[in-house]
Nucleic acid binder design. Structure first.
Length: 486
RNA sequence: GCCCCCAUCGUCUAGUGGCCUAGGACGCCGCCCUUUCAAGGCGGUAACACGGGUUCGAACCCCGUUGGGGGUACCA
């Protein structure tokens, strides 16, 4: 456990990222973290505090916490950088939260209330407000079944000065005396969050728009505790195609699932930074190192942003193509590993992959796509794809073309090298009145199983004469059997 | 219901009263290149929600309408 940081003397910016570990790490959370991180890094003494809000024991799991820390590290946010502070765990500060709740009561800023949920419902004289303040002046002391409520000051609005949205006014008349501590004394989010922010000397609270309505309550709490509220900034929500806030239930929101598919962390960072913000200058593909210094809260948009996986894909493709070959190969590693690849481990040959990798690099947009592009090299037999087969193996032409190709390729005088193979196939096709485009199709499907793929002749060269001929013959046999059966 | 936020191409955005006959990117379409598919090159499609003001002049300022969204727990 880590104690509160204590007296922080510097006046620099201190931001925080305070996720609750109740599920897979969310792309929206990732963006918030990135924005907070960018701000903290803009000052030599700037800090971003990572605080895990784990007070909801029933919904928290340690693996979610690990997932958050791991994901942040992948995005480049970790303790290796001096701007990082934490992680802290909110549950470690429960005592302070309880003390603060009590202090609020002693100062008369909060009072005990023994109303049940039902009673609150029944008695609401104002149908538009939840709780009517029934226990405000009943002078109740702490006791079983009594929750602690914060007394909203009479009259006047609370004005939240938001860096992104400007002045937002909340009339006190429309705010209910909200609960800060449960009947068992445990504090609620709204309080714990503020207490920690105060203790950690947070200067900028940058979070999702869904927290905007909590803000007047929290600002009142900051003031009741004798502190000047931080700079508030509420980011636009990230929405799905139906313009609803991304939800764990119905949308694909886990950062990890994108990474698992082969989205590069740096592409993800780049894309996420563009949700609600733009560096300007007609540039969008920009490394974090250039973006971070340019980021400013005042430039953040206030309207919701759609998470467009198509655009993410395009970005990812750009980043993949920009990788040096060796780097590209090692990034592909996880998808070629023995335990996940579809081919027998013994068949894999790194030298073969090295030879084919440059051809694949410009053709994939997410790393997982490397597998179907190179599998024919390592599988004992090409994959069976009926659609490809039916398209390329048209009656007559298919069989003729396969036979012609076998004839040419079997010639021992043929140098087994891409250029020569191309010429040979061109001739074979010409003999049947077929241009290369048509002529290569049956061969491609016979050898790789698919109608689309990497450049064919380089592929044939790498596969080797024996295997190519075997596959061509197998396809010819299959085609013959198929046709005699009809 | 109530409180609050938002509103530029399908999408992400540039734009902060004249530089806008509104720019870029993704997507989509066409052409070129080409052994398939990509990549690359070239070109195209497409937006200031609506109505009032303010102003010599509004995408930019104000008001309203409409439409979206968020919040409304003794969850975080």
């Amino acid at each position: 456990m880590r104690p509160y940081p204590g007296r922080v003397t510097e006046t620099s910016i201190r931001t925080r990222f305070a996720p609750s570990p109740t599920g897979m790490f969310h792309v929206g959370g990732a963006r918030s973290a990135l924005f907070n991180w960018a701000i903290a890094r803009q000052r030599p003494e700037g800090r971003m505090v990572l605080r895990i809000e784990d007070t909801d024991a029933a919904r928290n799991k340690p693996e979610w916490t690990d997932g958050i820390i791991r994901a942040l590290a992948l995005l480049g946010i970790n303790e290796d950088d001096p701007h990082f502070e934490g992680p802290y765990f909110q549950s470690d500060f429960a005592e302070k939260h309880r003390e603060t709740a009590l202090a609020l009561y002693k100062d008369g800023r909060a009072y005990y209330c023994d109303c049940t949920r039902e009673q609150v419902q029944e008695r609401r004289d104002n149908p538009n407000l939840g709780y009517d303040g029934f226990c405000r002046d009943r002078g109740l002391t702490a006791g079983p079944g009594r929750a602690l409520r914060f007394r909203i000051p009479d009259g006047g609005p609370t004005i939240v000065d938001d860096r992104i949205r400007g002045r937002v006014e909340f009339e006190h008349g429309a705010m209910e005396d909200f609960v800060v501590a449960r009947a068992d004394g445990s504090p609620l989010f709204v309080l714990a969050n503020v207490v920690d922010d105060v203790e950690m000397r947070i200067t900028h609270v940058v979070r999702g728009e869904e927290h905007l309505s909590n803000t007047p309550k929290q600002q009142l709490l900051w003031e009741a505790l004798g502190h000047t509220p931080p700079v508030w900034a509420h980011l636009p929500v990230i929405v799905n195609e139906k313009r609803q806030k991304l939800s764990k239930r119905r949308d694909k929101v886990a950062l990890e699932s994108y990474l698992d598919e082969g989205y590069l962390p740096e592409a993800m960072v780049n894309y996420l930074m563009l949700l609600g913000w733009a560096p300007g200058g007609d540039r969008e593909i920009m490394p974090w190192s250039e973006m971070a210094p340019l980021f400013a809260l005042s430039d953040v948009n206030s309207s919701s942003a759609f998470f467009d996986e198509k655009k993410l894909r395009a970005f990812n493709g750009e980043y993949i193509r920009a990788l040096p070959l060796a780097e590209f190969m090692s990034r592909c590693g996880p998808w070629l590993a023995d335990d996940v690849a579809p081919w027998p481990a013994a068949n894999y040959d790194d030298a073969v992959f090295r030879a084919i990798a440059p051809l694949a690099q410009s053709r994939i947009a997410v790393l997982s796509e490397i597998v179907p592009n190179v599998d024919f090299l390592f599988l004992d037999a090409p994959v069976e794809d009926d659609q490809s087969w039916n398209k390329a193996m048209k009656p007559g032409v298919g069989a003729e073309m396969l036979a012609a190709a076998i004839g040419r390729f079997a010639d021992p005088g043929l140098v087994w090298e891409a250029e020569a193979l191309k010429a040979a196939l061109e001739e074979a096709g010409a003999g049947l009145g077929l241009k290369l485009g048509k002529a290569q199709a049956p061969v491609r499907v016979a050898v790789t199983g698919r109608t689309v793929g990497l450049p064919l002749f380089e592929s044939l060269e790498l596969l080797g004469r024996e295997r190519v001929l075997a596959r061509l013959r197998a396809a010819a046999d299959r085609l013959a059997a198929q046709q005699s059966a009809e």
